[in-house]
Write a protein that binds this DNA or RNA. Structure first.
Lengths: 339, 339
DNA sequence: TTGAAAGCGCTAACAA
DNA sequence: TTGTTAGCGCTTTCAA
């Protein structure tokens, strides 16, 4: 195993002190008025010896890691996977790497990964928060660690966030269904008090009201987090069968629920949109290209990611210390699942 | 900002030396015969003061990070997203965190992220390699850094890998199409010399031979990496239109190509399976739940991930230094896209 | 059974 | 314009 070259090695070869080498290799030669000749010599030596700074030593000394932590629900999920992709891309442009973790919407796991990221001293955090994280998150904010929340936030957490207008997105979905003649609009959502979901429920209710449709708790199904995929499908199947004659359409409040919903509908032989109309919050390949195409409320995933990174890096660089609340708009995409 | 507690702080409070605290907190009290009373006292203090080891100091001293690096083509891709998910899960069980990066099958990016991971001194690497990485990878192997390749490997790289039987998977797909009466089987694959793809091509050729079908280069389409999604669709569309009357079925060699292929087919109004039959390497939600369901050669994603982590961690722990070559089997899933 | 001290590689304050 | 030195927090050898 070839020994790694350190600043000391270079200093020795160059016949100068450690400090000089450090300064030059950190691009501060001009500031410190190191002679051009010296600068060139050291730079060349650094390249020739293939010097790679020791990340630990640097971190230990400066406290900086050039890494940001990203916590999402599930990296395999379409929304979060694509979000993560753009976050990485944007961060990379600015010289940061990102460390992803999936919270799985699970209390223990959430807290565990956040602590772990804090231990590893990320320079900043982009987090789709869970309730279990609240205490840790509060501490983070209090200590003025750069952080921006995504997808949802907590009122009592005085932090920046980037979200979308969930209420209006849902409202539009429901209005659209109503406009197409549907009156018995079922809702399939998650059993959670996470804001994005309560807002989607709220939008559903507002939409009904606006369309003068009576709210019926019976045709609202709330599915707990943490069920296996098969069990989610099962729950939805049972819900649909139970309300077969009471509903004419279903609004799924997420990607995952929608996919499971399609599976459920298929397995009980319901045809979209002939037997039942369907609309979903969040887009994906299945909705876009499946037959029939599923109408969706689509989120500007790239914009969310870009904005989150932008705000975070500003905070890290202290260029801005103001708390930003960004709310982006959704877009209703009509396909063939509503009739 | 509350100052972080260090071993020194605890030592001071406990009235003992730094060393003792370090030993106890690392669970080596028994080995070093530290008295029970002392052990308990320090442990309690550590908990009370909420001691969190400094990752940099530890890493600087020991060279260990408890982090593994994972390089995939694209974290937003179904296959790699799910793979990453399981890798994280498995690694977590063993006390490791994982740092994901997407190579985007791009030369510069590949090399860049590998270097970056090496700089950050991962304890081990799980890599879907690209050609551009070869020199760095070779160095890694020579320095006996734990690493296992996934999805593909390079003969000249003497390293462990976990892959699937691509040749047989493709062969089965082609045989299946032939058995269903197809003779003009087009292939849509990537223009690359990456092993998983050349093997799938090889399997296609073997399948044709076995079914006594003449190979026709004209109905093999190779799409370069790095095109935008729309352009991939466009390329496939043109290919299909050009060969409209010459083909009765298409075999897509990946997830991404299949999705783009479905989009292309739809946009030119070709119905599956009436106008054309389709089969794809790799599964996803669209293939599983779309109408019609797309028949696929499915990979055991979880097993690949688990095996890769298992082998890697063994290497890290020096429990095993032997190079392992794992080749898992695919499964042909028949749905409705072939007639 | 415990402690002192060296040193991992780097940066930055201070000297020269 | 460059060098000396202290110290970031930790582990480990050697000594007591």
């Amino acid at each position: 195993m070839t020994k790694k070259v350190s600043l000391k090695d270079i200093a020795a070869k160059a016949g100068v002190s450690l400090t000089t080498v450090s300064i030059v290799l950190n691009g501060r030669a001009k500031d410190m008025k190191i002679s051009e000749a010296m600068t060139r010599k050291i730079l060349a030596l650094g390249k020739k010896m293939n010097y790679r700074p020791n990340h630990f030593a640097k971190g230990l000394r400066t406290g900086k890691t050039n890494t940001i932590g990203l916590i999402v629900d599930d990296i395999a999920n379409y929304f979060f996977g694509h979000l993560a992709n753009t976050v990485e891309e944007e961060a990379d442009k600015l010289g940061y790497t990102v460390m992803f973790c999936s919270s799985e919407n699970n209390e223990g796991k959430s807290r565990h990964i956040l602590n772990m990221l804090v231990d590893k001293q990320m320079d900043g955090y982009i987090i789709a928060p869970t309730k279990a994280m609240l205490p840790e998150l509060q501490k983070l904010i209090k200590e003025k660690k750069p952080a921006v929340l995504i997808d949802r936030y907590y009122e009592l957490l005085d932090s920046s966030y980037v979200t979308i207008d969930n209420i209006n997105g849902s409202l539009e979905a429901v209005n659209y269904l109503a406009k197409m003649g549907h009156r018995r609009i079922a809702l399939v959502t998650n059993l959670t008090d996470q804001l994005q979901m309560t807002q989607r429920l709220e939008g559903y209710q507002q939409g009904l009201k606006k369309s003068k449709i009576q709210l019926d708790q019976e045709i609202i199904k709330k599915i707990p987090f943490g069920l296996s995929d098969e069990n989610v499908v099962k729950e939805i199947k049972e819900f649909i069968k139970l309300n077969e004659n009471k509903i004419d359409s279903i609004f799924f409040t997420s990607n995952n629920l929608g996919v499971a919903g399609l599976e459920a509908l298929r397995s009980i032989g319901k045809k979209i949109p002939d037997d039942i109309s369907v609309i979903c919050f969040d887009d994906n390949d299945l909705f876009r290209l499946g037959m029939p195409g599923i109408s969706v409320v689509s989120q500007p995933i790239k914009d969310i990611a870009k904005k989150a990174v932008e705000i975070l890096i500003q905070q890290i660089n202290q260029r801005s210390t103001t708390i930003e609340h960004i709310v982006l708009n959704t877009a209703l995409i009509e396909r063939e699942s509503v009739k």
